[in-house]
Nucleic acid binder design. Sequence first.
RNA 1: GCGAGCGUAGCCAAGUGGUUAAGGCAGUGGUUUGUGGUACCACCAUUCGCGGGUUCGAACCCGUCGUUCGCCCCA
Length: 430
Amino acid sequence: MGFIQASRGTRDILPEEVATWQRIEAIAQAILTHSAYREIRTPIFEQTELFERGIGEATDVVGKEMYTFQDRGDRSITLRPEGTAGAVRAYIEHKLHAQGGVQRLWYTGPMFRYERPQAGRQRQFHQLGVEVLGSADPRADAEVIALAADILREVGIQGWTLSLNSVGTKADRQHYRDALVRYFEQYANDLDPDSQDRLHRNPLRILDSKDPKTQAIAKEAPSILDYLSDLSKTHFDRVQELLQRLDIPFVINPCLVRGLDYYTHTAFEFQLEELGAQSTVCGGGRYDGLVTELGGPDTPAIGWAIGLERLVMILQQQSETASTDIDIYCASRGVEAEAQALQVSRALQQAGLAVEVDLSGSAFGKQMKRADRSGAPLCLILGDEEAQNRTLQLKWLGSGEQEVLPQSALIERISDLKKKIILSKLAKRV
RNA sequence: GCGAGCGUAGCCAAGUGGUUAAGGCAGUGGUUUGUGGUACCACCAUUCGCGGGUUCGAACCCGUCGUUCGCCCCA
């Protein structure tokens, strides 16, 4: 085929699916706004160094997944692979910390990672995320986790599992890492090749290896929970207590390690089986060191991101797609009638009704057939006869009931029509 | 980056070397020239993602691209 297709790992979101996206965005926005979060919009590309420093040069995201290029001014530019680094950069650059107190931010938009696409994973994908900057209080941890749970519930997602862990402070993690390496070195030859490779690069990753033999060894490995400092432990205990009091079920998973370097203390993921290999729909955690790492004042912070494609995917698996939103289908035939029909339809649209005008000019039989298929409860019919008398026909497609009405009387009937339209839509849903 | 499967109409597909590429849904026209949902009839792929070769002959072989699943990793 000669035509140009969408790039690998990108896709079009067609009108039918956009309705779902808009619903999710509206729900999230309402919930976040009511919780004192404010939206922030940051650039889609940033200087490469921001991500190298923020996410960590050793991570896969930075090491092999970034969309990086030189611009015409010979600067190294990268399409953002996640939202936190940019939000934190903006926080520092505009001195939002100088406003004092806690900054609660949320964002949504496209992210880019050069990866091999599969279900639930694309090169351009969308996230919706929150960041709370300036609070080390465990209540902030509980708050953001609760918000994610609220959004999932309101959107209509059922059956998620919340996995929770603490990766402690940087020092805690260093001690633990050393202990882990010592432990795994004893079994170095029995580990799968991938894990042997990770032994010194990223030993925490060995813990969630899928290789059965490695899993058996990992089962007996020291747990990070035994290496937490008293302060880290107190924090983690408090987070758990608060989640219990907010009725948010969770499971402790000491093997939960998140991929980006900046995480400290609380780490969590909302998972769903429907997603297959990509089971995480929302991932996040605390990142107390990131703001200083990027040159800002010492500022504790926590956040998460929801993968919107994954959310939409689950929604489409778990629920039926919504039907049409058309209220009235307008059929007309004849030059003068068609003009009048257009005028009447506009009046109805301006009054807040969803009206679709048939533009085909084909026989009424055909137009009626389309009216029926459109799913609209009401059809408006206007032909030569009606045009002459300045009337129109209203036909209720459910019952077949039909009445003639002067066009001038339509406006005063509108609230009555709206009521009936809502009723017939409800009836159809059952 | 590695391994495996799959690409036939708008959608779901049968066909795995032999002449004219099943079927269903949707669409268009008609039976029904101003009134829908049912029914019936007709039409709807000179061509099987793209490119190339082999063969008397290719949707079927090869290459490539895309996609799906798994690994890695992640939302």
